[in-house]
Simulated assay, not measured.
Amino acid sequence: MSNERRRPPQARKGRGAISNVQGRFERVQREAFDDGWAEPVDEHQREPDASLPKLLTQVTIEQAKSILTRNSSPDIRFDVSLNPYRGCEHGCIYCFARPSHAYLDLSPGLDFETKLYAKTNAAARLREELSKTSYRCEPIALGVNTDAYQPIEREHRVTREILEVLHKTDHPVALITKSSLIERDIDLLAPMAEKRLVFADITIATLDADIARTLEPRAATPSRRLRTIRELSNAGIPVGVSVAPTIPFITEPDLERILEAAQEAGARYASYVVLRLPWEVRPLFLEWLQAHYPDRAERVMNRVREMRGGKDYDADFSQRMSGTGIWSDFLRQRFYKAADRLGLSYKRLRLDTSRFRAPERSPSANTSGKRQDDRQASLF
């Protein structure tokens, strides 16, 4: 019998996932195996990414055939969403959208945060959708299965182009992000706010920068996000804070402090979501726990199971966002008591749909959205 033991999970600097966990639709089974060729590692002196190659971000240009997604889940506050990208470079290990990469025959792990797709014709497709005589105006949630302001938005500006369409047509939009890049678009958002056409939600899971560095490695720091709340609020844009996810014994202790800091920065609304582990998110999160918090991994998961009826996850609409049981009830009481004390509302601003003006549809319009300098892929 071999005396070799498998090397513990090893994290890459700047990346959330530890591995490329197999997607549930893949036909070929993969299993990690140490063949002995790797250099021996002293676990007491090991650098976090000492023997791992740096992974570059690859962006593929995608021409979307449709752009609006309809939602019927009773526990989600919006009916229509728009995602300008597939995948997300922020690399948040807990992201519920990770499993969507399995539909592309890619891994919800490292692939999700390194192999991205930019829908560069999104604005054209949106304009086409809004100009239909059958279209009925409803607030659009911008950036749900991806962060609309992730780092690649600086170059591709898909979100900016979408907002220009919504601004011109007086169409209401709700934004959720953990990026300070949203401040770039205040020139569009502030006039829309005056007409009650926009709401912004800033996600903050923890105030601890060290935790955030591994939990959501390429997102703005918690302190920077608080500054973003202040900038948006000062510009007259209604802004809320989403305390998500609350992870027992990791981010959960910060719940009240996040609400206090956000309210002081200008947030008027608040919400929270407990950790969700659907599909491939579960093994990815377990790897992350073993890599960064092996001393409390079992304790964290035991508490997660207490909130999920003994399971790692329960997708039931009535409790998937908040959980069930004594600990879940205690967390709920903490949130509402703190929000009440701070004067934070749980109900989002009702956006105005009466101002919408359908765009004129030009027969010669370029609905493909292609740019002359588009490339099929780029590495940076």
Rank of each mutant, 00 (worst) to 15 (best):
M1C: 15
M1R: 13
E4N: 13
E4M: 14
P9T: 06
A11P: 06
R12H: 09
G14I: 01
I18V: 09
I18F: 00
N20L: 05
G23D: 07
G23C: 08
R24A: 12
F25T: 14
R27Q: 11
G36L: 04
E39D: 11
P40F: 07
E43M: 08
T57M: 01
Q58I: 15
T60I: 10
A64S: 06
K65C: 10
N71W: 13
N71R: 14
D75S: 13
D79F: 15
D79A: 13
N83V: 05
E89I: 03
I93A: 01
F96W: 13
A97V: 07
R98W: 04
S100W: 10
D105M: 11
D105F: 12
L110N: 02
L110D: 01
E113T: 05
K115C: 11
K115F: 13
L116A: 05
A122C: 07
A123I: 00
A123W: 01
R125L: 07
E128V: 06
L130Y: 01
L130S: 00
L130M: 02
L130V: 01
S134R: 09
R136Q: 15
E138R: 14
P139I: 02
P139H: 06
V144L: 08
V144T: 12
V144F: 04
N145C: 13
N145G: 13
T146H: 00
Y149L: 03
P151D: 02
E153K: 03
T159Q: 01
L163F: 04
V165S: 07
K168M: 10
V173M: 08
T177C: 03
I186Q: 09
A193I: 06
V198T: 10
F199Y: 13
F199N: 09
A212F: 02
P217I: 06
P217E: 04
P217A: 06
A220T: 06
A220P: 03
A220L: 05
T221E: 14
L226V: 07
E231L: 14
L232I: 08
T246W: 09
I247H: 00
I250N: 00
D254S: 06
E256F: 04
L259P: 05
A262M: 04
A262D: 00
E264Y: 10
A267V: 04
Y269I: 07
A270C: 08
V274G: 03
L277C: 05
V281G: 01
R282G: 10
P283R: 03
L284W: 00
E287W: 00
W288G: 00
W288F: 05
Y293H: 09
P294V: 06
D295A: 12
E298N: 13
N302V: 15
G309H: 08
G310C: 07
K311L: 15
K311I: 14
D314Y: 06
D316G: 15
F317I: 10
F317N: 11
M321F: 10
M321Y: 11
F330I: 14
F330A: 15
L331K: 08
A338F: 02
L344W: 06
K347V: 10
R350T: 12
P359Q: 07
R361S: 09
P363D: 02
S364W: 15
A365Y: 12
A365P: 09
K370G: 15
